[in-house]
Amino acid sequence: MADFEIKDLRASVEGRQILKGVSLSIAKGEVHAVMGPNGSGKSTLSHTLMGHPGYTVDGGEVLFKGQNVLALEPDERARLGMFLAFQYPVVVPGISMANFLRTALNSKRGYDGKDKSKQVTPKEFRSMLKGELEVLHMDDSFLPRYINDGFSGGEKKRAEILQMAMLKPEIAILDETDSGLDIDSIKFVAEAVNRMRGPELGILIITHYTRVLEFIKPDFVHVLVDGQFVLSGGAEVADRLEKTGYSEWGKEETAQPQEVA
């Protein structure tokens, strides 16, 4: 039984249809990978699932906990248990990471400034952070920094995974989390994600390249081309892509890991 079900999702950006009917079922405990070449609709899929205002839903539904989340605001989706690790985490000046994490955690718990029992205590917050920071090879020094401001590529992606670890979603979408990362950072990120793997979490990894899948082994791999899935299978699909790239769908792009400085 699927815990998270995408049914015939169609979406467009600035009047151009990008997703042309995407269906996918994820059960908690599973790791799914969506792979595709540039322009196949990967980003549209992640943004539409989370409710970015720049993407228009033209049809279909996304069912999670008995609700069509497409009707919900992004914050409502998050509080329901969804999480998106951004490909390009956004810089927000003037707000410290610590403040951001604490506010997000309080929101997730339904703290609205009134019922203090729902509020995360400083002690609890510190102890939650401590363990996660270690796994991601991060330290306290990033907590007073403004959200993603002046972060290196690796720091941004690790900060995304840290947020995921703190917020404990049930469905996590990792949007090209491997892009722009050196091999060490990919390993740290993968280690943190693998630690969270378990029966309470379904993961959707969106990626162009197979490399991240060497560290986070997917149960299912789906190939997205021109807004539709053209192939679905187990981990072996990734191996096939690694050898032949996307050429069988007329795309001259490799799925080999890129070298990052």
Partner: peptide, 12 residues
């Protein structure tokens, strides 16, 4: 920025 913060569960 708004989408980013909201995607973490923070109301608009």
């Amino acid at each position: 920025q708004l989408f980013y913060l909201m995607s973490r569960g923070i109301p608009r």
